[in-house]
Each structure stands twice: as C-alpha cells, then as structure tokens.
C-alpha cells in the first residue's frame, strides 16, 4: 500500500509542495529548502533555528559584527590576522539577488596557525551550482587563487574546512601576503 501512496513533504506547512514516494521522502527532507536550518554564523554557539529566508535577517540582527557589502567584486580586509587563538572573520556579500557569506577561519594549535577561506551561498545546493567564487591573495611577486562553487546552507562551511575544499594557507604564506598584520583578499562571485 505504501508503494502505491504518495506523501507530502513534512515541511509542507512551511511551503514545500513536493509529493513524494516513501522511498524518496527521507533524502528530500534532509535538503528541503523549507526545512529549519541552524544559525550559519561560524564559531558561535547560537541556538537559532529558522527557515532559509530568515537566516540573513537573523545574522544581521543578532550577529552585528558581520559586515555586509553589495557587489560581485569586493576586497575582504581581515584585520589583525596573527593574533593568537582561534578566530573567524565573516562578511556577507550581496549580488545577483543572493547573499553569500565569506568566511576566513584561523586555527591555532600551540602557535601552528592555519587559515581557511570559503564562500557559502545562503541558499540551496541547487542555487549554489549556478555560481562560482574566486578568492585571490596578491603581493608584488606572488599571488594565490582558489576558485570553486560556493557551499550551500545545507552543506555548511565546516565540512568544507574539514574536507580541505577551500583556500588553505599556513602562517608563512599568510606573512607573504599580509601587511602590518592585516590581510586583503579579493572576492569575486560570478554566474557560471
């Protein structure tokens, strides 16, 4: 009987109109854009849960340290990057009608500092496939570039950092590109 019957998504109340066979229900619901998401702001223990389209208003209201910038091309100027400890630098870049969270994460294990930079679309996995982001570090004689499809809200950025699917560099490379302890990173988002 279950094979004959189709079921609504459990997030139908929030707007999901999918009708599913019982075999496809679980997979769909994990990535449903109408499911509740936890706060995407990295490095804080925030208990917020909400719909995808409520995530950016939450970030701007509750995490005021976030800087928001319009435009496809920006220069992300991370200040004081060598300060000891584990830190995140976070900015929201708005373009093409979407919000992209740009994150620089610094790990510090007994002085061994590593940096990870990644961009996450505050949107679905499907929407993220339409974009490419490029991160660039420049100094007079060198440059370092990373180009990839942005993470989605479903995928999160922690998996990108743990999976090394991001721009990564260590302390000595950071010293090449930093000036007075600050790091300028070009961020360019484009449609693919």
């Amino acid at each position: 009987l279950a094979n004959l019957v189709q079921f609504p998504c459990k997030y139908a109340l929030w707007g999901c109109e999918r009708i599913l066979a019982h075999t496809e229900k679980a997979d769909h619901q994990v990535n449903c854009e109408f499911r509740l998401y936890s706060c995407p702001f990295p490095g804080v223990s925030c208990n917020w849960m909400g719909l995808m389209n409520a995530a950016v208003p939450h970030l701007i209201d509750q995490h005021r340290i976030i800087t928001t910038q319009q435009g496809e091309d920006t220069v992300f100027f991370a200040s004081d990057i060598f300060r000891p400890g584990i830190f995140d630098w976070v900015m929201i870049q708005c373009c093409f009608g979407f919000n992209f969270m740009v994150v620089l994460h610094k790990r510090d294990r007994y002085g061994d500092q590593k940096f990870f930079a990644v961009v996450q679309l505050i949107g679905t996995h499907q929407q993220a496939q339409n974009f490419v982001y490029k991160l660039e570090l420049h100094c007079p004689r060198q440059s370092l570039t990373w180009k990839a499809i942005p993470r989605s809200l479903q995928e999160g950025i922690k998996t990108a950092i743990l999976g090394r699917e991001c721009l990564m560099f260590n302390n000595s490379v950071a010293k090449l590109f930093a000036k007075n302890g600050n790091l300028s990173m070009n961020v360019k988002i484009s449609r693919c």
Partner: peptide, 24 residues
C-alpha cells in the same frame, strides 16, 4: 565596460566560542 574598483571592506575578527573548540 567601465571597470569598477572593488570596495574594500574591513572585517574584524571574532573569537571562536570555547565550547565549540573541541568539535574542531
């Protein structure tokens, strides 16, 4: 096509919450 100079955005660090560090 006029080239727009990208705007520089100063981003301040925020400390990673201690209770999350063990999950790293």
């Amino acid at each position: 096509r006029t080239y727009r100079i990208p705007k520089e955005v100063r981003v301040e660090p925020h400390k990673f919450a201690a209770e999350l560090i063990h999950r790293l």
